[in-house]
């Protein structure tokens, strides 16, 4: 029998904010873990950044209804965490940070069971479990007890069980923990594939900036249980693509003149070093054309890449946990 309230038609379009926090406070005993978080994030994939103990995992657990909020409220995909937690879980796949499995159980069995718990029928769950585990690269190892797996294989199993029911929202808590570089890259590629499918939105918690930078288009940075910063990585990327640093050999004046003529902001310094912000409609190729025409050698050209790192460091340095204006 189908449950009309728990179908995959839950509100998960990219128009709906992924996560809305309104003065959210969570306390454990007398210890305040999340201190009045307020933010709205609407990206297809949102990164949750912060150092250890910042409250990332507690926030994820609160969104899943594991910890009640002592004040304020949170909404996930437009659903209220306090009142609609079952509906949230019905459209969510969760990959926990720590090892979470039953040692004597094979990955197929566990994933099938979890698929059934998510609401799939037995046949659908079994089929999806095989698909998800094969997709995650476990191959024939999926029939082995999970207790015999390496750390990387366990992480992949956790990812497979999270996506087995084809959730609208995927919550990943430190997915690349303890992975060697090739396996980490594979994990990142899989996450990107889920994101690019357009059917699933992602909340990714990590203390690794690179993971968030590669997979997310929005980020929220936590520090000591407070929102230190939020940033739209997609917009940053677009901006950064237009921010160039050049080093040229020869007279750079024609290049600077052309750039200014076409609306570029341009600053020159000694040694043929230039900094430019290209406006819409001006491409890097145009610079090369002008340089070739005036016999100017462009020896180095780089666009700014480490924006998230800068934002993160600024957020961490700010004494009160807030970014300086």
């Amino acid at each position: 029998m189908n449950d009309p309230t728990a179908t995959h038609d839950s509100p998960a379009t990219t128009r709906t904010p992924l996560m809305e926090l309104d003065d959210l406070q969570v306390t454990f005993g007398r210890r305040v873990i999340l201190k009045g978080l307020t933010a709205t994030l609407s990206g297809a994939s949102v990164g949750l950044l912060g150092p250890n103990g910042a409250g990332k995992t507690t926030l994820l657990h609160t969104l899943l209804g594991f910890h009640p909020a002592s004040r304020g409220r949170a909404r996930v995909l437009g659903l209220d965490v306090a009142r609609q937690v079952v509906a949230i879980r019905a459209c969510t796949g969760y990959m926990p940070e720590n090892d979470a499995f039953v040692a004597g159980t094979s990955a197929v069995r566990l994933t099938t069971m979890l698929g059934e718990l998510a609401g799939l029928g037995y046949r659908a769950a079994l089929e999806r479990a095989h698909e998800a585990l094969t997709w995650a690269g476990l191959g024939e190892a999926r029939y082995r007890p999970i207790g015999t797996y390496s750390l990387g294989m366990r992480q992949m199993t956790k990812l497979a069980q999270a996506v087995v029911a084809g959730p609208k929202l995927l919550i990943l808590d430190e997915p690349t923990n303890g992975m060697d570089p090739p396996v980490r890259q594979r994990m990142i590629n899989l996450i990107k594939e889920v994101r690019d499918s357009g059917a699933t939105r992602i909340i990714l918690s990590s203390h690794l900036l690179k993971d968030v930078e590669e997979c997310c288009d929005e980020a929220i940075i936590l520090k000591d249980g407070e929102v230190a910063s939020t940033c739209n990585l997609e917009a940053e990327r677009r901006t950064n693509k237009k921010f160039l640093e050049l080093e040229v050999e020869g007279d750079s004046e024609p290049l600077v003149a052309m750039a200014r003529e076409r609306g570029c902001e341009c600053a020159t310094s000694a040694g043929g070093r230039l900094k430019m912000i290209l406006p819409e409609g001006v491409e890097i190729r145009d610079l090369y054309v002008v340089a070739a025409r005036h016999d100017i050698q462009i020896r180095r050209l780089s666009s700014k890449r480490d924006s998230l790192q800068e934002i993160f460091l600024k957020a961490m340095e700010a004494g009160n946990g807030r970014l300086p204006a």
Binding site: N2, A118, G119, E127, E193, V194
Partner: peptide, 25 residues
């Protein structure tokens, strides 16, 4: 969908009732 198709596919089928889910354990 066959197992050999390794691209990620979302599931768009119907879901079971809550009572049926509790019986899974």
């Amino acid at each position: 969908m066959a197992v050999y198709r390794r691209r990620y596919q979302a599931f768009d089928g119907g879901l079971a009732s809550r009572g049926a889910r509790a019986l899974v354990f």
